[in-house]
């Protein structure tokens, strides 16, 4: 891609960003940033004592180490092999959509004419694994968590798909490169603001973050689908949500914010990274300022206002495509 880097674009995508290093790096930075930001809003300091000069940036790393080297308990009442395998599969499946998303021209693992559409569908299919995981744990809290997860999924899936579909209709393509090219004049967020709003709310629902943190509501169902896990498996089960946030933010940056425009190459990758913040920061800050919805309230939003808005977004795109 550049003279500076001997690696080709697709290998950079696989190894650095948005690939393996990006996913694990995001996990650490996102957890730190979330704790710091929420602490700032609530007039606390947040993580402080591990690596004080860095503002506690290494605290999540210390936490991850602590979790990796704590005892791995496999409960007796479950299928132990599946119990250990599903969180790994879940984490992996959450990261899989980045294969089809470009971070800069040529920085994509598998360029495909329907790349972004496949990524959206892969993101939506992962809910199946969360439910499977909860089912394997076989515990009343995980069952309730699974029910809430699947109900929430059914509520945000249609609006999220319609929001993405509206953008694909507008651009006339789902190829990441062409989608970004189509935004060289105006960004997608200005071309179809309705779809952007739907996408942002659906992102909060999909990553079960506040105010939709319902499947793992701590005061009600312990940790919902993650209740039985500990040690490394807990990192995967719980961290999978952060990976989903990473994927959906990347997808959103490409779909709505013009991706790597106005640059290319290494600078383009950095710009994409910065634009992801538009989705990541609200998702983190919502935790500090919003209470939690009840499941029926969240479903009402999903099947009511959000569905109507997303249908309107598709009509908007059809009209816009027809006029041009």
């Amino acid at each position: 891609m550049d003279l500076l880097f001997p690696l080709s674009g697709d290998l950079i995508a696989a190894l650095v960003f948005p690939g393996v290093l990006g996913i694990f790096g995001f996990l650490v930075v996102a957890i730190w940033l979330e704790r710091k930001l929420v602490a700032r809003v609530q007039w606390r300091f947040g993580p402080l004592y591990v690596s004080k000069p860095l503002g506690g940036l290494l605290q999540p790393v210390a936490d991850l180490f602590k979790l990796v080297f704590s005892e791995l308990v496999l409960p007796r009442h479950t299928n132990r092999l599946l119990f250990a395998a599903t969180p790994i599969l879940l984490f992996f499946a959450e990261g899989l959509p980045v294969v089809f998303i470009a971070a800069a021209p040529g920085v994509v693992m598998a360029p495909h004419p329907y790349g972004l559409a496949i990524a959206v569908v892969l993101v939506l299919l992962v809910a199946v694994l969360v439910v499977a995981m909860a089912w394997i744990e076989a515990d009343k809290f995980t069952y309730i968590g699974a029910m809430r997860e699947i109900l929430l999924t059914a509520a945000y899936e249609v609006p999220l798909l319609l929001a993405a579909l509206a953008m694909f209709l507008l651009y006339g393509t789902a190829d990441p490169h062409k989608v970004v090219e189509a935004q060289s004049g105006l960004w997608g967020v200005l071309l179809n603001p309705l779809a952007f709003v739907v996408y942002l709310v659906a992102l909060l629902m999909a990553t079960t973050r506040f105010p939709f943190e319902i499947p793992e509501a701590e005061p009600e169902v312990v940790l919902g689908p993650y209740t039985e896990y500990g040690s490394t498996l807990f990192i995967y089960a719980f961290g999978a949500n952060y990976v989903k946030l990473y994927v959906l933010s990347l997808l959103g940056a490409v779909l709505f914010l013009g991706g790597w425009l106005p640059a290319a190459g290494v600078l383009g990758v950095l710009i994409t990274l910065a634009k992801m913040g538009v989705f990541v920061l609200p998702a983190m800050l919502a935790r500090a300022i919003y209470p939690r919805y009840r499941i029926d309230q969240a479903l009402r939003i999903g099947w009511g206002q959000l569905l109507a808005l997303s249908a309107a977004a598709v009509l908007w795109s059809l009209l816009a495509a027809w006029i041009w």
Binding site: D10, L11, V20, I23, I88, G95, V99, M109
Partner: peptide, 11 residues
């Protein structure tokens, strides 16, 4: 190659 590498390394 990149896809295979990503999947192998990640898993």
């Amino acid at each position: 190659v990149a896809v295979v590498l990503f999947i192998a390394l990640f898993l």
